[in-house]
Each structure stands twice: as C-alpha cells, then as structure tokens.
Computed example of a mutant assay.
Amino acid sequence: MSKAQDNYILDLTQNRRGYALNRMCGSFKDAENRDRFTADEATYCDAYGLSPQQKKAVLDRDWIGMSDLGASIFYIFKLAMMDKKSMQYLGGVFTGMTADEFAAELSAGGRSFG
C-alpha cells in the first residue's frame, strides 16, 4: 500500500488524471454495475479505460494509491462500501490510524493543525 501524503490537492490536472477511475467508481450507484464489477473486477476496470496503475490500485484495494492516481475520496468510498469498509476505516488508512483510533480522534474534536 502506498504511503499517505499530508494533503491532497484536487486541481484540474489531478481531476483529469483520475477521470476514468472516478467515473468507474461513480457507476457503482447502480446495483447492476456493482454486480458486474463483483463478477469480474479486471474486465470492469478495462471497460472504463483505467490505466494499468489505476487498475492495479483498484484490484489491490490500494486506497492511497487510488488517491495518488487522481481518485476523489468520495468515489473511493463507493468502492470501499462494496467491501463493507467504513469512512472511519478509510480515514484511518489515510492518517495511519486504525478505524477505532480515527473515530476516537473525531470524537475528541479532531487533530489540531496549529
């Protein structure tokens, strides 16, 4: 799994880079597409024109790698939900914490960036 960055900036370049990946994850709003993906993940990735790196990140569930390759957390979460992963789980992945540690940080008011 890739190493988390301190921050992610979604600019036009990053948006374009992640377009196919975000479009594919966005398709999971339809049950039929979720079923098609589950039946053959690699073929589904190919149908959306993912780069080899994006496809590998999806198949490996490299959440940080997907973000590094242009995916938005909001679309990544659609895939994570298919794996029954919570937003707290992803928050933990992106911050180097467990889901429980991340949830506790949120309950305590979050981290201070001062």
Rank of each mutant, 00 (worst) to 15 (best):
S107L: 07
I9N: 12
F28Q: 01
E105W: 08
Q53A: 00
S72E: 12
A80E: 03
N22L: 05
R23I: 00
F74H: 14
Y44T: 10
C45T: 05
A71Y: 11
G65C: 08
K84I: 00
D11V: 09
N22V: 02
A4R: 05
K3L: 09
R23F: 07
D11G: 11
Y44V: 01
D46P: 12
C25F: 14
A31L: 15
S86M: 03
F74K: 14
A39F: 06
N33K: 09
M24K: 13
A31R: 14
Y44I: 00
S86A: 08
I9P: 06
D35W: 06
S27T: 04
E101H: 11
S27F: 03
G49S: 01
G26P: 09
L79P: 00
C45G: 04
Q5R: 06
F94W: 04
L50W: 00
N22A: 09
I64S: 07
A57P: 05
L59H: 08
Y89G: 09
G49Y: 05
I64R: 12
Q54T: 08
E41I: 07
V58I: 14
S51G: 02
M97Y: 05
F74G: 15
M66C: 11
I9R: 12
W63S: 01
Y89A: 08
D6H: 00
L21Y: 11
A4V: 04
K55T: 05
Q88G: 15
Q54G: 04
K55Y: 05
K3Q: 08
G96Q: 00
L90E: 13
K85M: 05
N7G: 12
E101V: 09
N33S: 03
R17K: 15
T13P: 04
N33G: 05
I73S: 07
K56V: 05
L106N: 01
T13Y: 11
F74I: 12
A20D: 11
G92H: 12
M66S: 14
F37Y: 00
A20Q: 05
A80K: 07
Y8P: 09
I73T: 08
N33E: 11
G114M: 15
F77Q: 15
A108D: 13
L10Q: 12
D6K: 09
N15R: 14
R61I: 10
L106S: 01
N7I: 08
A39D: 10
A47E: 15
V93M: 08
D35R: 02
D83M: 03
R23G: 07
F94T: 05
P52W: 01
L21H: 12
V58H: 12
G26A: 09
T95A: 04
N22D: 11
L50Q: 02
A103S: 08
G96A: 10
F102L: 03
R23T: 04
M1T: 04
